[in-house]
Design a binder for these strands. Structure first.
Lengths: 183, 183
DNA sequence: ACCTGAACACCGTTCAAGT
DNA sequence: ACCTGAACACCGTTCAAGT
């Protein structure tokens, strides 16, 4: 006598993500997710193998959203204009999702799957290739992503609170990086 | 009738740090720290206010160690040589302390005090000033630290596992950044 | 002044029992 | 086939009682 499913994996992941966005990863407890989807905590194990797996699923979805946001920023015109647009979209995404963005790259938090992470930064690789050349595309893209991610981590973490203009530092970095890739 | 102290705050922090280095932040439980210093968990609250505070104290100590490592790398000669040396020391430190390094800059993990974090990157600011000029010193230093931290976070997180030479990407980044600051 | 055991409210996770 | 309550081993934290 089968019992009807009262929720779905997608709903569980969505609930988990909402909790992360609102109150941070540490607030993502099985009990709270269960309450959000209208079941009891033990039943969640019909959908996910463990809390860590759920966190990873949430992280993967955030990475996919980031990929889409970066894709949308590529205009197909001047490569340097595109790179600036992609970086602006990168920062906008992180500021729009301050609690879940860190999940995409941080090792400790939970760890996205390598595929999702690679997918997220694919747009950067494409745009950078046109600037730095095929030969340097990979290290150049890694340089750009490393800088952007490091900057955003520090910005979200409040590392820039004391003195100076954060927007100015971002613009400075973008300009210098674009120039450096060209050379 | 006073009871003699069986441990010290320094010993508690040191024990916490050792646990983080060995098994990661999530393994830092009050019970395990207590066992390491030879007391029971409730007694730890005579030394630290909470587990979070202990994590912060560990992070601060790691940040201080990083500051010393970077200080030691500054040779006082050619600024670009110094910057390369500081960055090499930065990476060496992160690889030597893969589990505790992330505590210095990550917002989620626990959060260092702003003072300790600023102290950690002070050597970079000093060296960069000589290259980028007084006027651009702050944004230039932020660009360098953001790149280095982003790169190391991704390297430690295994983001560079698929394809390409990580050392080459690091060298590429260092060279391009040094050049970009000069311009 | 510090340490302890007992207790509390929470976790994640397992599992037999229900439908 | 999914859901549940009860249970287990853990957490962090508080506190009265010991020395």
């Amino acid at each position: 006598m089968p019992a009807p499913a009262r929720t779905s994996t997608a709903a569980v992941v969505a609930a988990g993500r909402a909790i992360v966005e609102t109150d941070g990863v540490e607030a993502l407890t099985m009990q709270r997710v269960a309450e959000a989807v209208g079941i009891r905590a033990p039943s969640l194990y019909k959908r996910v193998g463990s809390r860590s797996e759920l966190v990873r699923m949430v992280a993967d979805q955030v990475a996919l959203d980031l990929a889409e946001a970066l894709d949308a920023a590529v205009g197909g015109g001047d490569p340097e204009t595109d790179l600036r647009a992609v970086l602006a979209a990168f920062r906008a995404f992180a500021r729009r999702n301050p609690a879940s963005y860190p999940l995409v790259f941080e090792p400790g938090s939970g760890g996205v799957s390598p595929e999702a992470r690679d997918r997220a930064i694919a747009p950067v690789l494409g745009v950078v290739r046109a600037i730095a050349g095929e030969q340097h595309a990979l290290p150049a893209a890694r340089t750009v992503v490393a800088w952007a991610h490091g900057f955003l981590t520090m910005e979200l973490g409040g590392a820039f609170q004391l003195g100076g203009d954060v927007d100015e530092a971002w613009e400075y970095g973008v300009t210098r990086l674009v120039r450096a890739l060209r050379g």
